[in-house]
């Protein structure tokens, strides 16, 4: 009996490690090693190719905050990134909530509308940027046609007051379909009896929306709040492709990119990556602390909210965890 037990254990160990081996190798090589190595380089002045470098300790981390002559764009890039999050996240959530509620009001053609809204989510970001560059062109695009017709001189991407809001608008446009799908699927899971109860109490459509729908999708909205904040803080593609950081659109990721690519400052780019990571973590913790996960306490509710969040995280990957 004992021998059988033992051999079974050995077999489990063998099989388990066989199945997990690729993960262990991958994890060591492309998660653990990069984190450790780049943390080490963040404390050096390595340029990415030369044989020698100097160990600086925490100097990079201090320099980037305190040396506006060498790193003039760092503070502004943090401001720009925060502003971008402020423009995109609340608008995305409110719009997703409203559109999902409209789609949930027993209409015909729900699938048609969902498909329309989702198309930007399956278009490669580079192609979307190209499309918008043309549309917003002050001489040839859609904006060009408006300028021609009304004698205006609108150039949205070439003005400090409109460039970032325009990119934010594009981002809200591009992400709406995904957000709507997620909020809608949460709405469909709300118990219909809650609506009936509200109706019995004499509640109209608006009351039902605020007293049943909104509380019902709150955990989902909270999940979207966190993921879209994380995504917004890492914004890069649009800014690189459409404005190249001009007119107040240099985000932290773009700043990291140019330090790495244009200046070969691998050490500093690594340090900034860690700073951005800390900023993101602070945001996540603040949101966890401030925003209630569920309308009231109790283990059951909490577990439900957690389960909902997990379910929704499936689609997170659709957006590439950006």
């Amino acid at each position: 009996m004992r021998r059988i037990e033992l051999s079974r254990k050995a077999r489990n160990n063998f099989n388990g490690w066989l199945f997990i081996l690729p993960l262990v190798v991958y994890f060591a090589l492309f998660q653990l090693a990069p984190i450790i190595l780049s943390f080490f380089y963040s404390m050096t002045d390595w340029n990415g190719y030369s044989e020698s470098y100097t160990f600086l300790g925490l100097e990079n981390y201090i320099e980037v905050f305190t040396n506006p002559i060498l790193y003039p764009d760092f503070w502004p890039s943090i401001g720009t990134t925060f502003l971008y999050v402020l423009y995109t996240v609340p608008a995305s959530l409110v719009l997703a909530l409203v559109v999902a509620a409209l789609l949930n009001s027993k209409i015909k053609g729900e699938r048609f509308f969902k498909t329309c809204f989702y198309i930007p989510s399956v278009t490669a970001g580079v192609a979307v940027s190209a499309m918008w560059i043309y549309m917003l062109d002050p001489s040839y695009g859609l904006v060009g046609a408006i300028n021609e017709a009304f004698g205006t001189d609108i150039n949205l991407l070439h003005s400090s007051s409109t460039a970032l809001p325009t990119l934010a608008f594009m981002s809200v446009w591009g992400g709406l379909g995904y957000n709507v799908l997620i909020v809608l699927s949460a709405m469909k899971n709300i118990n219909p009896q809650l609506y009936e109860a509200c109706e019995v109490d004499g509640g109209g459509a608006i009351r039902k929306f605020f007293h049943v729908t909104v509380p019902g999708v709150l955990p989902t909205l909270f999940f979207l709040l966190i993921t879209s904040t994380i995504g917004g803080l890492q914004a890069f593609d649009q800014m690189y492709l459409m404005t190249d950081g001009a007119y107040g659109t240099t985000t932290v990721m773009l700043e990291i990119y140019s330090l790495y690519n244009d200046n070969s400052e691998v050490g500093m780019a690594s340090a900034m990556s860690y700073i951005l990571f800390l900023i993101i973590m602070v945001f996540v913790f603040i949101q966890y602390a401030v925003v209630p996960q569920s309308d009231s306490s109790g283990k059951r509710k909490k577990r439900r909210a957690y389960g909902d969040t997990l379910r929704l995280m499936v689609e997170l990957q659709a957006e590439g965890n950006r």
């Binding site: 990069p34 984190i35 190595l37 890492q234 990721m253 790495y260 990556s273 951005l276 590439g320």
Partner: peptide, 11 residues
Amino acid sequence: PGAIMTIPNLV
């Protein structure tokens, strides 16, 4: 988050 790993993975 994915983008944070960009520079480390480049290294």
